[in-house]
Design a protein around this nucleic acid. Structure first.
Lengths: 225, 225
DNA sequence: AAAAAAATCCCGTTTTCCCCCTATTTTTTT
DNA sequence: AAAAAAATAGGGGGAAAACGGGATTTTTTT
């Protein structure tokens, strides 16, 4: 398992000296990993990284000069192959999301042990994404919540195909788009009276008795945006 | 790191005998883990699991009798403390989501190595969620995609607070909820004429000249659902 | 204190919405 | 082939919306 670690070069970006040196000591205790450089300033970090071109950057999220996410973003823009692992004190949802969005490969909580650090580095070198378990859990929970919210909406979608005829859906859509009865009847080449009858029937079926309600239904049913 | 593995009991559910025995051999090669039972049928699995009460269930997602997700769901309902790790051939999005939803603690691809199996078991015993890296990556990607879609909508939200006065927003909301001018004027204790004037003014400001458009705008602005 | 913006008020006209009725033709289902 | 559902067609009438105009009071900003 340790065989896939071979001469991995790392740059550490972390402003608190003691923490930085601690991390450095930990990292260097792992066989096959070399720390190329270390810095505590965001802007300086970019210079150092672009010059030394490490495999992996361990990047504190809260650093002076340029914040960690901004640094990560620029690293990935200039050198997409450089793997970035964020180091953070807390499982702040916004930070997690922003980090993942700019393309970091890992997100480690600072109370992780040395084993996790090693695992994270190995993971990202394998092109994987490594998240500390609490982070991972949060992402998964959020993932589930979002999909479930989405699925609820789908039920209305299905429903509209069951209760309304194609013609009715067509007309409902036009109503929801803001067209008047007259406009719609002209567009569909039917008389105004039929349009009126259609609208009335749609309202009966859906038990909605005003345009506002029809529009809200049409949006939920994804007939309009 | 290996010290937190102590007498972990496992049940393996997998219908292909060779695969099952292979997994069994792998698992038993890990120190401190004991395989209590094994079966290849979903319904039988529930009996076995409820009788033997293992710490962890390794559960193939495609099994006869009852499908894996259904089995997982019942296990978590009856015995929430039993950890379930799904075994799957592919990174099927629907399976992943459904599994996570019913509360499984791990999702492993079958081409994972023994190290990953060990890691997954240790992870779930620590109350963490373990996903095979490709699975993890997919979940993260999906997570980002969903949040980004959500953020787009927020822009309209802000806008409504800039262009409409509080009173106008209040009225727009009531209109979008389907109330008539008369109803709203009564509710707000203002004359019908003012309501009319308000509506007219809102329409002018937004450059929207029908109820349908107002409702769509109100929904985008999150004034109504 | 002056100016600007928001909220209030009134009226008359045209258009659209919404509901009521009956009825025929076409399509789908049984 | 018969029955049911959908789409077509028409008319009448009351309520509400939409638009035009003009005006006052209150609040906020400058």
């Amino acid at each position: 398992m340790a065989k896939d670690i071979k001469n991995i070069s790392i740059v550490i970006v972390e402003d608190h000296t003691i923490v930085r040196q601690g991390i450095k000591a930990l990292v260097e205790s792992i066989e096959g990993i070399k720390v190329l450089a270390e810095t505590g300033d965001g802007r300086e970090a970019l210079d150092v990284i672009f010059k030394s071109k490490p495999h992996v950057v361990l990047l504190d999220i809260a650093i002076p000069g340029l914040n960690g996410i901004e640094v990560a973003s620029r690293i990935k823009k200039e050198h997409p192959h450089i793997k970035v692992i964020m180091l953070s004190m807390h499982a702040n949802e916004e930070y997690i999301f922003q980090s993942l969005r700019v393309g970091v490969s890992g997100y480690l909580l600072k109370d992780s042990g040395i084993e996790e650090l090693e695992m994270a580095i190995k993971s990202v070198m394998r092109n994987e994404i490594y998240l500390s378990p609490p982070i991972s859990k949060q992402v998964v929970m959020d993932y589930i919540k979002r999909i479930e919210a989405m699925e609820k909406e789908k039920k209305v979608d299905k429903n509209v195909f069951e209760v309304l005829t194609p013609r009715q859906r067509e007309i409902l859509q036009l109503i929801a788009e803001g067209h008047t009865t007259k406009e719609i009847s002209k567009k569909l080449n039917i008389s105004v009276n039929i349009m009126d009858a259609h609208r009335t029937q749609i309202m009966e079926i859906l038990d909605i008795h005003n345009v506002a309600g029809l529009v809200r239904y049409a949006i939920k049913a994804k007939l309009v945006d």
